[in-house]
């Protein structure tokens, strides 16, 4: 039994790492920012952490903090042009940002190890650390979304005019969402670095961007459990059906097309919505019958 569980430990670690990235993506989308920058910000965090530990000999916890800070600060800088853009333009600009990070990582070989990347990062992060990080992340998301910030994010995403007319500062809230998302991506980038001995620039490119987006879209964009469901399904699926692992790209592609067209709210959001509708109609039926029974008695 223990052996079976241990066999799945690497998969569980991967799940926790990707879950953090998924939440980074989820949070900005929830605040109505059409950013795809998570992967680039994760690269910033990963390299900050990796370089601090390997080249400068910093202890891992300090490097982790620095990575979160770096992710947040870069996101803050990025938010200046992003605030001026809308929709599609934000998506394009953030994809360009990923490209800039990617090519700078390759170019600055002296610092980053170039195309070969950084090697020999001491492994200081294990399942327990990742689990704690995961729990803290879910709590943070829950706290944010049940506070005035979450209410403001939801309003901005659905209708900017309404949000502004109710006193919500759109730019301030979107910047905040983006900076938190950046710090989260930076943190998980560094966790990834400290978990896997080596870093390569190509890790933080299009395939990863697509994976992270797929987790969020498949799971659901408007509930906290959405990214958990999406990440779990997309990571477990190839494990239970080996042929799917070889055609991972095809599976992601087909799923994206199908989900966007036929289940646009994602699995978790759709199920939660259905459950709520059932509960409400049951309650409505009860309140309809209540007066009649009262009259009879």
């Amino acid at each position: 039994m223990t052996n079976v569980l241990l066999g799945y430990q690497p998969l569980f670690d991967l799940f926790l790492l990707h879950l953090g990235m998924a939440y980074s993506q989820w949070l900005v989308l929830r605040a109505g920012v059409f950013s795809l920058a998570t992967v680039g910000l994760a690269a910033v965090g990963a390299y900050t952490g990796g370089i601090l530990v390997v080249t400068l000999g910093f202890p891992a916890p300090v490097a982790l903090l620095a990575a979160a800070l770096a992710g947040g600060i870069v996101a803050l800088g990025l938010s200046v042009p992003l605030a001026r853009l809308r929709g599609v333009y934000q998506a394009i600009a953030t994809v360009a940002f990923i490209q800039i990070v990617l090519s700078l990582n390759i170019y600055a070989a002296g610092l980053t190890g170039g195309p070969q990347g950084l090697n020999g990062i001491p492994k200081t992060v294990g399942t327990l650390t990742l689990l704690i990080a995961g729990i803290l992340t879910v709590y943070l998301m829950y706290a944010i979304m049940s506070s005035r910030l979450g209410r403001a994010f939801d309003a901005i995403r659905q209708n900017e005019a309404v949000a502004a007319s109710l006193g919500v500062s759109i730019v301030r809230h979107q910047t905040l969402a983006f900076v938190i998302s950046g710090a989260l991506a930076g943190t998980y980038g560094a966790l990834e670095a400290f978990h896997s001995y080596a870093l390569a620039p190509s890790q933080f490119a299009f395939p990863f961007l697509i994976a992270v987006l797929s987790y969020v879209v498949l799971g659901g964009r408007n509930t906290i459990i959405g990214p958990i469901i999406g990440t779990a399904i997309l990571l477990i699926l190839p494990e239970i059906a080996r042929p799917l692992a070889e055609a991972r790209m095809l599976v992601y592609g087909l799923l994206l097309i199908l989900v966007i067209n036929y289940l646009p709210r994602g699995i978790a959001d759709t199920l939660i919505e259905r459950a709520r509708a059932r509960r409400l109609s049951a309650r409505l039926a009860k309140s309809d019958t209540a007066p009649t029974t009262a009259a009879r008695s």
């Binding site: 059409f34 929709g87 987006l213 095809l250 592609g253 799923l255 966007i260 036929y262």
Partner: peptide, 29 residues
């Protein structure tokens, strides 16, 4: 396949990006 249904939905801009990203992956495979 990817866009026709989306034209009528409210979130088409976002949906189109993901849907065509999916198509791109399929064609590449």
């Amino acid at each position: 396949v990817c866009f026709r249904r989306l034209r009528k939905s409210g979130d088409a801009e976002f949906g189109a990006i993901l849907s065509s990203m999916g198509a791109s992956l399929v064609i590449m495979t």
